[in-house]
């Protein structure tokens, strides 16, 4: 945490309307996350991990308190500004990969660059670089349906990394993978983290993931119960 702060969360609460009133998923979170961290939000199911990641990712907004991400207050962003933030500076990795089935591996990874309106040669170089980091250069023309789960998640990581975002948010990235693939992917992410100084934030309750974390933020019932630097 000696690095500069990228994310600063103060007294953050998130309520969801329910039939019987409202449900408080995040109940007063205070948190700072710095550059190049490899951090995990861990905790039992329903503790609010995904909700927290969604707010950091500007996909959702706080009900109370403040969430500053890369110098921007999430509550104050309009739709376009939030989209711009995600487009330029954030990467997402999902449990179920969320690859576009009709696109090839190359096209899936290229999409974030298309949204950035980069030209063809720039795109090609960045996509190939990214696929190389993930060891996918021989799968360029494959469609997601032709890949294994591990390969799909590697494509998803390539897609998240291709624009070299400052923060990558990964919600249960290993939940659909076997042990070997999980370790493989986590090692890759550790490597990318140190190589590019990209901040990784996980939401997980997978021990395999936890064993790679450098910092573990434990959430219980929407509150930070423990926040510890681990041995890695």
């Amino acid at each position: 945490m000696e690095n500069s702060t990228l994310i600063s969360i103060e007294a953050l609460k998130k309520h969801f309307p329910t039939s019987g009133g409202r449900f408080t998923a995040l109940n007063g979170i205070d948190l700072k996350i710095g550059k190049a961290e490899f951090t995990g939000v861990v905790g039992p199911s329903g503790s609010g991990k995904t909700t927290l990641l969604n707010i950091i990712g500007s996909l959702d907004s706080p009900s109370e308190g403040r969430a500053m991400v890369l110098g921007l207050s999430i509550s104050d962003l309009n739709v376009k500004q939030a989209a711009l933030l995600r487009r330029t500076r954030l990467g997402f990795i999902f449990q179920s990969y969320n690859l576009l089935p009709v696109y090839t591996v190359f096209e899936n990874v290229e999409l974030p660059l298309l949204l950035l309106k980069l030209n063809e040669s720039q795109r090609r170089k960045m996509v190939m670089d990214s696929l190389e980091w993930l060891g996918l250069t021989d799968k360029v023309k494959s469609k997601p349906a032709q890949l294994s789960g591990g390969e799909c998640q590697r494509v998803a990581i390539a897609r998240a990394m291709v624009k070299r975002p400052e923060i990558v948010l990964a919600d249960e990235p290993t939940a659909n993978l076997d042990a070997a693939n999980s370790h493989n992917i986590l090692k890759t992410m550790v490597r990318l983290n140190s190589e590019f100084q990209t901040t990784f934030i996980f939401a997980t309750h997978d021990d395999k993931v936890i064993s790679y974390l450098k910092r573990k933020i434990s959430l219980v019932d929407g509150k930070v119960e423990k926040d510890e630097i681990t041995g890695n």
Partner: peptide
């Protein structure tokens, strides 16, 4: 729906 969510996560606006 997931695809729609993915487009948005990748930085498209909903109107896009």
């Amino acid at each position: 729906q997931k695809e729609i969510g993915t487009y948005i996560a990748l930085g498209m606006t909903r109107s896009q």
